[in-house]
């Protein structure tokens, strides 16, 4: 690329430079301000009152924040584990086997990626309401929404993302390798365990980290399906804003931002990791 880069001249160069600067300012100025004011010793957001770590201390001490954080982490871990297993299985089935309706399921799997969050949220809410009614009529038990319904919803949208990432990895891996393993006395399970799994592992880890990020960040769907005691951190922050903004939100947001960035970076690293040259 570098060899092809032409030297830009005069006005063009200046205009493009300005454009690039504006784009980056547009992207990162709000983030910079968010981080800056999370250290501001003034209860009004947007007014600098000197440096303080009070808001981070409040974040650590506030029980509501802590319990929301706990819910977030529990939901994220459970939904990630389940969606990684199901998503990987779906990816293997679609990529390795020819069956009736293959194309249809393929398209179906991508749907949650393009459905608007609100639609997904309404769908899930409707589903849980009907499920609750059905459960109380048939079994006479009351299953109200809670951590479980949030987890199920997160699983529902994470599976798609996991299986897309894993599929890309499987598609790049020759079926011949599995056949070679079986030819060399491996059972189907051993062929999966010693050949397929190590080769698609970077995809699985990448997909898992993506699922973790999506679960930790989701507001819209969670808000619809959350019940009492199942408020996640993003939902809690959203609630706080309605009651008035305080730099505590900034501190919470900064922590969430850092966590998300970290996870996405890890995910990218995992996906790029060479599980060998997969041919």
């Amino acid at each position: 690329m570098a060899g092809n880069a032409k030297q830009l001249k005069g006005n063009t160069r200046w205009a493009l430079g300005l454009n690039a600067t504006l784009v980056y300012v547009f992207f990162y100025a709000p983030i910079a301000l968010l981080i800056l004011f999370s250290f501001s010793d003034d209860p009004l957001v947007g007014r600098w009152g000197g440096f303080t770590l009070d808001w981070y201390r409040a974040f650590g001490e506030n029980e509501e924040v802590q319990s929301a954080l706990g819910v977030s982490i529990r939901v994220a871990i459970m939904s990630t584990v389940v969606s990684v297993v199901l998503g990987t299985m779906a990816a293997l089935a679609l990529e390795r086997y020819r069956f009736r309706g293959n194309k249809f399921f393929d398209a179906l799997l991508y749907l949650p990626v393009i459905i608007p969050d609100v639609t997904m949220a309404v769908m899930m809410l409707l589903f849980f309401t009907i499920a609750r009614n059905a459960a109380s009529t048939i079994f006479g038990v009351d299953v109200s929404k809670g951590v479980w319904s949030v987890t199920v919803s997160h699983i529902a949208f994470s599976i798609s993302f996991v299986s897309i990432v894993v599929r890309a990895r499987i598609a790049g891996m020759s079926e011949k390798l599995e056949e070679a393993a079986q030819d060399l006395y491996a059972s189907r399970w051993q062929a999966f365990r010693y050949v397929t799994l190590p080769l698609i592992l970077p995809g699985i880890i990448g997909g898992g980290l993506l699922a973790l990020t999506l679960s930790l960040d989701d507001v819209v769907i969670t808000q619809f399906v959350a019940g009492p005691g199942s408020t996640t951190l993003p939902v809690y922050v959203f609630g706080l804003i309605r009651r008035g903004v305080s730099p505590l939100i900034n501190a919470v947001s900064v922590v969430m931002l850092a966590a998300s960035v970290l996870l996405v970076l890890l995910s990218l690293v995992a996906q790029r990791a060479r599980g060998g040259d997969v041919t």
């Binding site: 020759s174 390798l177 056949e179 070679a180 030819d183 080769l199 997969v278 041919t279």
Partner: peptide, 8 residues
């Protein structure tokens, strides 16, 4: 195998 299918 054709193209060998060595485990990478």
């Amino acid at each position: 195998f054709q193209n060998y299918a060595l485990f990478p």
